[in-house]
Nucleic acid binder design. Structure first.
Length: 525
DNA sequence: AGGTCGACGTC
DNA sequence: CTCGGAC
DNA sequence: GTCCGAGGACGTCGACCT
């Protein structure tokens, strides 16, 4: 664990991107297999230990530390792994035993049976120093949040191994920890691992939000437009007899969507939006699709009530031919030709939206208030298909957000770097003489505004419920959101999609905030 | 057997 | 998915 | 321009409690 904990320590205190890359490269160069492979898996969130969840760790620490002391410390520190690492009572007589290696930890945990895990963790915590404990806890609980995403870890690998990042992304999804074949390639000892042979996942091309300022510099003649469908992004990979439906992150969701997979009797890799559609193309709201997501088993009733559909918008492979290097318009022509020839069931093409200039497109975008459409996509005609989110080739242009003046009702402490602030706000609107909660938000304001909000909350607290403070109804928050729909989550019976604080109305009296009826009128469908 | 609650993956 | 902040 | 971390609503699943 020593190298790994030194790496984690270094990363936590290294804000500079290039500095992080250097730390990672040094680590990969000086740490042997398979330790470095397991570390890479941890950094890219490819390692999951099912028994070592935050709740279990809290339980464990309660056996060794006074719960009151722990609660206060956690509240102050704001990060579970950090708190436990600092507060864990060391036992000098056991500290002499050798701390485990990275591989020992991973392999032991993988082989451990239910119920053994926390005992093992306790033993290791006793042999490690505080940075070792921190690294161990980060490792086993998953999301490290130490300033390195999967993408940055791969960038560092590519730079260190002097290979192209795109090449690495291409074969990444065919690899498994501890990545011996990957490191062999990066050290020049072998060829690049095969790119997920057959129906392997290919990393997706993503879009940027379009800002009004961007548009001035764009020529409408360079772009085509499509509707932005409100479903989930999928990649259909059917090659060499294998058929897979992948989600945006490369998870295989074929099992949940046999009604799509069964019709993939072709040889191609396609990109599109998964939707629920009844009667050949009548798109249901996103909520209906959610019933089909994350399912292990699908009943016949589900298939009938929420039939899946894929609206296709790109083609990556036609048979063995890789089309990703072609400009968008050529891929689109190939997609249309392919679709004409194959005529797959439960799939259609996302139509191009004809337009003259930005003004006509703007009109179309605002005019589309259908549930299944979130706005428009703009794709540059000459754009090749690349992994990641380059700026310029693809834009998403969502419909304008809705806004509402709400009243701050409750506030809660944040986590991590926000652990010392009340940063988590529940807000409501008037129903008659009373306020009813309609949602929560904690971004949209600047750090400076957060300081002021925090002060406001502390000065206007009327009651405390554990970590939650109730405040007097005196601050109006203008909240922005994409849509609103019926829900049991809040007392009001309504919930917002993507709520965020748009403006803090220090000037506006709470009595003039909006009423529930106003929000109800915004519900579509 | 049925309800609750936390974790996870989608947006 | 959103946003602000930091590089 | 690009990445990162803060965390929203929702649904499923699985562990655990009654």
């Amino acid at each position: 664990m020593r190298n790994f904990s030194a790496l984690i320590d270094g990363l936590v205190f290294m804000p500079a991107r290039n500095g992080k890359i250097r730390l990672l490269a040094d680590f990969f160069a000086t740490t042997p297999d398979p330790d470095r492979g397991w570390a890479l898996a941890a950094l890219t969130e490819s390692l999951v230990f099912h028994e070592a969840k935050p709740a279990a760790i809290r339980q464990l620490v309660a056996t060794r530390v006074d719960p009151e002391l722990f609660a206060l410390s956690y509240d102050y520190v704001g990060d579970l792994a950090e708190t436990v690492a600092l507060i864990w009572p060391e036992r000098p007589e056991r500290a002499n035993s050798l701390p485990p290696s990275m591989t020992e930890v991973v392999e032991t945990l993988r082989a451990a049976r239910r119920g053994q895990v926390m005992g093992l963790v306790e033993g290791w915590l006793d042999t490690l120093d505080s940075s070792g404990r921190f690294a161990l806890l980060k490792l086993i609980t998953g999301s490290l949040r130490v300033g390195v995403s999967a993408r940055l870890a791969k960038t560092a690998l590519a730079e260190w191994g002097k290979v192209d990042l795109g090449d690495l992304e291409e074969c990444w999804h065919g690899l498994t920890p501890p990545y011996a074949d990957l490191f062999a390639w990066l050290e020049g000892k072998s060829d690049r691992p095969a790119a997920g042979k057959g129906a392997g996942f290919r990393p997706l091309m993503l879009s940027h939000p379009l800002e009004e300022e961007d548009m001035a510099g764009l020529d409408p003649a360079d772009y085509v437009a499509e509707w932005k469908w409100d479903g989930i992004r999928v990649q259909l990979a059917a090659r060499g007899g294998e058929r897979r439906v992948y989600s945006r992150t490369g998870d295989d969701v074929s099992g949940a969507f046999p009604d799509i997979a069964d019709h993939m009797t072709f040889d191609a890799v396609l990109d599109g939006e998964l939707l629920v559609a009844r009667d050949e193309g009548e798109i249901a709201p996103f909520n209906d699709l959610q019933q089909r997501l994350n399912r292990k088993t699908v009943t016949a009733a589900m298939l009938k009530e929420f039939p899946a559909w894929v609206r296709l918008y790109d083609i990556l492979f036609d048979g063995e031919e890789d089309l990703r290097g072609l400009p968008f318009t050529e891929r689109r022509a190939r997609l249309e030709r392919w679709h004409d020839a194959v005529r797959p069931r439960r799939m259609d093409l996302s139509p191009l939206v004809p337009f003259e200039g930005w003004e006509t497109l703007k009109g179309l975008r605002e005019g589309s208030r259908e549930n299944s459409i979130e706005g428009l996509m703009l794709k540059r005609k000459d754009s090749v298909y690349v992994a990641g989110r380059p700026k310029g080739p693809w834009f998403k242009w969502k419909r304008g957000a809705l806004t509402l003046d709400t009243v701050l009702m409750y506030a809660q402490r944040g986590h991590g770097k926000r652990s010392s602030y009340y940063s988590d706000f529940t807000f409501g609107v008037w129903r008659g003489e009373e306020l009813v909660p309609v949602g929560k938000a904690y971004f949209g304001f600047t750090d400076a505004e957060l300081v002021e909000l925090d002060r406001w909350v502390r000065n206007r607290t009327t009651r405390r419920y554990g970590p939650v403070r109730e405040v007097e109804p005196g601050l109006v928050l203008e909240v922005a959101f994409d849509s609103v729909h019926p829900s049991n989550r809040h007392k009001s019976g309504l919930a917002m999609r993507f709520p965020r604080v748009h403006r803090i109305r220090w000037d506006k009296p709470a009595a003039e905030a909006d009423r529930l009826e106003t929000l109800q009128a915004m519900v579509v469908g």
